[in-house]
Design a protein around this nucleic acid. Structure first.
Lengths: 132, 132
DNA sequence: CCAATTGTTCAATAAATTTTGGACAAGGAC
DNA sequence: GTCCTTGTCCAAAATTTATTGAACAATTGG
């Protein structure tokens, strides 16, 4: 039975950026980024934290849409949702650039709205490829 | 009198990524990213949270090395440390790519060490420009 | 069917983080 | 010098997050 994951259009940049804002989850994402194609099974993270805590943190990452978790017998395979996150990032860059009339002080960032109609997405440009 | 800021070589990727892992600080960084050249003064964030809480969150971002805070009379100007963060990001990409022999399962990410000798930096590749 | 393995659930606990509001400090304007 | 504005400090409270370990569930292998 598959686990609940947010649809691609339900993934928001704040949630995606907030999810790794914890040392354990950051380490998990770091490991996964090195083998994005095949992912990893839960057992491979046991040196990071306890089994129980791992369950907790992987749920956080799954619920944020950062990873997908797929049962494989008694194991579960975890992968970064690269395609969805790339799409989110790309979509965001597109809109951020469009809205990118930067004025000193209070730019109304509410004008930055994703095309998909998802919740307001706020950028951390320094982590993303900047507009040319 | 200037406020204490970490030197550029004391800024670590985990701290930089973790600092915006809070809705309020994420919003602050989002605002700042839209006017990176001139930054903003504290008063411009008052619609985000209370003055006291703002003091707390800006201290968090300053201590992580994400922003610089400069007194200007009774006001304080906050700016993203773009140059330092770009340097961190660039340095990290350089080393991540060098170390980037990706094997399924347990890649020893401890081999990924910043040239500057700062603490181990773990990448969230999906947020950074990928290696060609 | 039983044992082993993997991972989850649960409630409780601990730790960390965020928020609060009044008092306070520093700089600027008059 | 006084008043105003901006932002800080402080301790306490509230909220959130992370961790724990035993019991449990599902799958696999024999």
């Amino acid at each position: 039975m598959s686990l609940p994951h947010p649809d691609a259009d339900q993934i928001t940049m704040p949630a995606v950026l907030a999810a790794p804002g914890d040392e354990t989850r950051l380490a998990i994402v770091g490991h996964l980024s090195l083998c994005a194609d095949v992912g990893m099974v839960c057992g491979q993270f046991h040196d990071l934290t306890s089994k129980t805590n791992l369950t907790y943190h992987l749920a956080k990452l799954r619920e944020a849409g950062v990873v997908s978790v797929t049962p494989e017998g008694t194991r579960r395979r975890v992968k970064l949702r690269c395609a969805d996150l790339d799409a989110l990032s790309g979509l965001f860059r597109h809109h951020h650039c469009r809205g990118g009339q930067v004025a000193p002080g209070g730019v109304d960032i509410h004008q930055l709205t994703c095309q998909s109609g998802s919740k307001l997405v706020i950028c951390i440009c320094l982590f993303l490829e900047r507009c040319p």
